[in-house]
Design a protein around this nucleic acid. Structure first.
Lengths: 356, 356
DNA sequence: ATCTGGCACTCGGTAGACTTGAGTGCCAGG
DNA sequence: CCTGGCACTCAAGTCTACCGAGTGCCAGAT
């Protein structure tokens, strides 16, 4: 083994250095081919690929180097190579051409946003459908958090003689409610006044701001305020857990053929909190893709996650994500996530209900 | 073949007639064994089963008859028998012992209902988790419809200069909202008055009741009433689509090992409307189990659905369902669905928020 | 100093032959 | 009418041979 200029002396030294252009080309050929066929790709395939002008023997020796450096791996001797996570990573970072949606898909997106109407939640929910349809991967959408929204209205509505509903409206259009129990014989009027009274104290504040309501002078109202306060705390806790929408879980079963993989990935998707954390983590690290074990979730080790922020000039409004096999079509998935994220952002600030 | 008393002369005549007790016992043995092992069961297994006092040869000839009558089938010659849908059906209707939850599971249910709190939606959602945990099948819960609930409060809340939120509270504690657009310069006070005015007209009615709001005298308010009216219609449409909660989809991947089956069943579960219709259909036919193709959904042909109403003295409050392979543990699943359905019913009418 | 064609070698996958064993259908005798 | 016995069937497992895609290495060409 004559060590030469661009061979990393130790397997894990010189990590991020750009690959020798030929090797890069070979890596690219392997990745694209493998994404396409899901079969290990051999040296002769690569040698025939456009842009490779060397013989298969040369390709082979370069592949040995790429394998030594951790970009490729062999499922077994005498099989072709498949990319490692690191190989995909290099591909995504340095090789993949930006990727655009086809005209049909572009139209589909436009049509979707022209036609969809209704509340934010509905739009987000439907957006997961759109993303899955565009990419045929499972998708995830996280809505904007309520932390900077202010309380717009607080109301107490009687439901029965023993129950009332605390209804809180935020400036972003979110509505939350909690049932509270009443002491026997609370009349409608007292309720309304207690609601109004709480309102005067809370309207204009954010959910997280500490608050207290002074005594009102009426013991009946004060009692109501106390139970409403407890309900309010509960509600406040529930609202800063961002709501997650999952779309196209059935697509997972298309992406993987090991039923066990499907099971464990579905199990992850059931845990909303994990999903949000995952997406946020990836975004916070400034990435748009997490491949294999790059996020820390073992059951997702055979998955890649493509993430795009939903934001408008820096303001964080949520995130969209796509979940597929590591051999997913990154350029396309990234383009889809990006476009949908962007349009969602516009929609959210643009108008609560554009058309209709 | 000497036709004797209990042989049906033609394969599909004499359908529902009770099976000869020995055949019933054999069928039962086959079904329970197959549910347990998922392997075709042979005559000698059956002959050794408790309650069967005849030789394997006799069992064999009875099995031939059972096969002829459509209760059993052979995957191939020289394999054991497995039950057909009809076989499962007979088992469920005439053979299965009622089925009870184990003490641990019973405790789990009690604990769940003691501890769960919060709004109906939350309870229903969590209940799917409980059901999946109890049975390790995917579960479905459909909440009560709002059709007989009356409107308890209508409110218009300003969100921005151009948008307001119509918030409607029903007597069952449900809250729905729609964004409406405002003409420039609508002030807070006009909004509140328009809301109150709509309220005076709608409070006390059901959602489906036709309604109209007379002119108020103020053109500004009338304009608001018109846009709120449109929003209200939209909301009304959305609310009589019952909300469905799906739990433990990951369990599906445990129940089936053909990934294609998993995919198509997941795809069905994504269509909420289909799920509701399916459950309602089954309940309406007075059944608690639908096996294989008994419901009309081709992709679910390898599934069985166990359904239990959520009701209290005849009042329909929804339904719970379990979705598993046809070789599911019917007695256990039925017991679980029944218990959870019952407790949910009590919870719904009993108190909106029991403990906490 | 590199690339290339050639060559021996590896090894997964497939196909065929054979064996095993569970299970059946049928029948003659109790 | 039941039973034990027997011949038969067929899926699944094992073994072997073989093919072919693919590799690593090397000697010679550029």
């Amino acid at each position: 083994m004559t060590p030469n200029a661009d061979d990393a002396a130790a397997p894990d030294a010189g990590e991020d250095r750009a690959l020798n252009p030929r090797r890069a080309a070979i890596l690219e050929a392997v990745v694209t081919e493998y994404i396409d066929t899901a079969e290990p790709v051999g040296s002769s395939h690569v040698a025939n690929a456009p842009g490779i002008q060397v013989s298969s023997a040369t390709v082979r020796s370069e592949m040995v180097a790429l394998e030594r450096e951790g970009y490729l791996t062999q499922p077994h001797t005498s099989a072709g190579r498949i990319p490692t996570d690191k190989g995909y990573r290099f591909f995504v970072d340095h090789l993949a051409s930006p990727g655009v949606l086809g005209p049909g898909q572009r139209r589909r997106v436009t049509q979707f946003f022209d036609q969809v109407h209704g509340e934010m939640e509905t739009v987000l929910e439907r957006a997961t459908g759109l993303l899955s349809e565009l990419t045929s991967y499972a998708s995830v959408v996280v809505g904007p958090s309520h932390e900077s929204s202010t309380i717009r209205s607080v109301q107490l509505v009687g439901l029965s003689s023993a129950h009332a509903l605390l209804v809180v409206v935020l400036s972003d259009g979110a509505v939350e409610k909690r049932t509270i129990e009443l002491v026997e014989g609370t009349d409608e009027d007292t309720l309304a006044r207690a609601g109004a009274f709480i309102g005067t104290q809370l309207v204009g504040r954010t959910l997280s701001e500490p608050w207290s309501v002074p005594p009102s002078g009426s013991p009946a109202i004060d009692a109501l305020v106390r139970s409403a306060g407890a309900a309010f705390d509960d509600l406040e806790g529930a609202m800063d857990a961002d709501k997650v929408f999952v779309g196209g879980p059935a697509r997972l079963a298309e992406s993987f053929d090991a039923v066990e993989t499907v099971r464990s990935v579905l199990a992850i998707l059931e845990q909303q909190l994990v999903v949000v954390t995952l997406l946020r983590d990836v975004l916070d690290r400034g990435l748009s893709v997490a491949i294999g074990m790059e996020h820390g979730y073992e059951p997702l080790s055979s998955c890649a996650v493509v993430v795009a922020p939903v934001s408008i000039d820096g303001q964080d409004l949520g995130a969209v994500g796509l979940l597929g096999p590591t051999r997913m079509d990154y350029p396309h998935a990234m383009a889809a996530a990006h476009v949908v994220g962007e349009r969602l952002g516009q929609r959210i600030v643009g108008g609560h209900d554009g058309g209709h």
